[in-house]
Simulated assay, not measured.
Amino acid sequence: MPQFTSRSGELGELLRSRRERLRPADVGLPAGARRRTRGLRREEVAQLAAISSTYYTYLEQGRDVRPSRQVLDALSAALRLDAAERRHIHGLVHGAPAETPALAEVLPPALVSLVDRLDPCPAYVTGRCWDVLVSNRAARALWTDWPARPPEARNLLWWMFTDPGARQVMVDWPAEASALLGRFRTAAARHPGDPGFGALLERLHAVSPEVREWWPQHRVTPLSSGTKRLRHPALGEIELEHVVLRLADDPERKLVTFTAPDQVQARISRLL
């Protein structure tokens, strides 16, 4: 069954996947003849990062070695990692130690009240594993009726990958789903001792071919604000701007709020 590997194993898998996606021309190396290896060779990455080939091999094999921040920066440059991927590998090696399992997530009444008062602007709060902890009427009308779902299904990833309605609601479903899975991986690396992440990943692997295909790609995605396009039976396709706010007393709880142009917002109000 799928599970989260050790931090060293996770680092090794990520390095290998990023090495295999690069071509020699991407890093200024000649292709050469009789190249049987997909992507770069290990010794080529080691050369670019100015480390020994043996040491790099140990890293890819997931051995219990702890590269310095300077080595990680050199590998990031050699493998053309983006900013989120750089932060991720630093967190895997030099992040916080394993923690005790987190307690059940209970929101303060003031936050619940705030989400309700944001109507007709859609808003919801997600927890560390993207459980939807509270949502207002507008969010329930545009996404799904979260309180009506079984407790184990009140999760944004579970809805995204298992509910056919998600593919109707999210106009850009492949991009949205892939990014959400990348954010989940990024958060999981911060909580190696939390069994909730592993349990959800196992459930998703069992039912979603996309998760089984995308998880080995090791995409890591930071939280970000931006634009989402939704499809609604009564409203048609609408575009919303969203902002993600992390709570000061628990940064893993995320308040997501949405706004729309005045005409669209008025239609959402009439819908409610």
Rank of each mutant, 00 (worst) to 15 (best):
M1V: 07
M1Q: 11
M1K: 10
F4N: 07
E10P: 02
E13G: 15
E13L: 15
E13W: 14
L14C: 06
L15E: 04
L15W: 05
L15P: 03
R16W: 13
R19F: 08
E20D: 11
L22G: 05
R23C: 05
D26I: 13
D26E: 15
V27H: 08
V27Q: 04
G28A: 13
L29G: 07
L29Q: 08
A31K: 14
E44T: 09
Q47M: 14
S52R: 08
L59F: 07
R66Q: 15
Q70D: 15
Q70H: 14
L72N: 02
D73A: 14
L75E: 03
L75V: 12
S76W: 01
L79A: 05
D82F: 11
A83M: 07
E85G: 09
I89H: 01
H90P: 00
H90I: 06
G91A: 12
H94E: 15
P97F: 06
P97N: 06
A98F: 09
E99S: 14
E99L: 13
P101T: 10
A102D: 10
A104P: 05
E105G: 04
E105H: 03
V112H: 00
D116A: 00
L118F: 02
G127Y: 00
R128F: 01
W130E: 08
W130A: 12
D131L: 03
L133I: 07
L133C: 06
L133H: 08
L133P: 05
A141I: 04
W143T: 09
T144N: 07
W146G: 00
A148C: 04
P150E: 14
A153Q: 15
R154E: 02
N155Q: 12
F161E: 06
T162W: 12
D163R: 06
P164F: 07
P164V: 10
P164S: 12
A166P: 03
V169P: 02
M170S: 01
D172L: 07
D172W: 08
W173S: 09
A175G: 12
A177E: 04
S178R: 14
G182R: 00
R183V: 10
R183F: 05
A188Q: 02
H191V: 00
P192G: 08
G193H: 08
D194K: 06
F197T: 02
F197V: 04
G198P: 00
G198M: 01
G198R: 03
L200P: 02
E202Q: 09
R203S: 12
V207H: 10
S208C: 03
S208L: 02
E210S: 09
W214L: 13
P216D: 13
Q217D: 11
H218T: 08
R219E: 14
R219Q: 15
T221A: 15
S225M: 01
T227M: 05
K228G: 02
K228F: 02
R229N: 04
R229H: 08
L230T: 02
P233Y: 06
L235N: 08
L235Q: 04
E237D: 10
L240G: 00
V243G: 07
L245T: 10
A248M: 00
E252H: 05
L255R: 03
T257I: 12
T259Q: 11
T259P: 01
P261R: 11
D262W: 09
R267H: 10
S269C: 04
S269A: 15
L271F: 07
L272G: 12
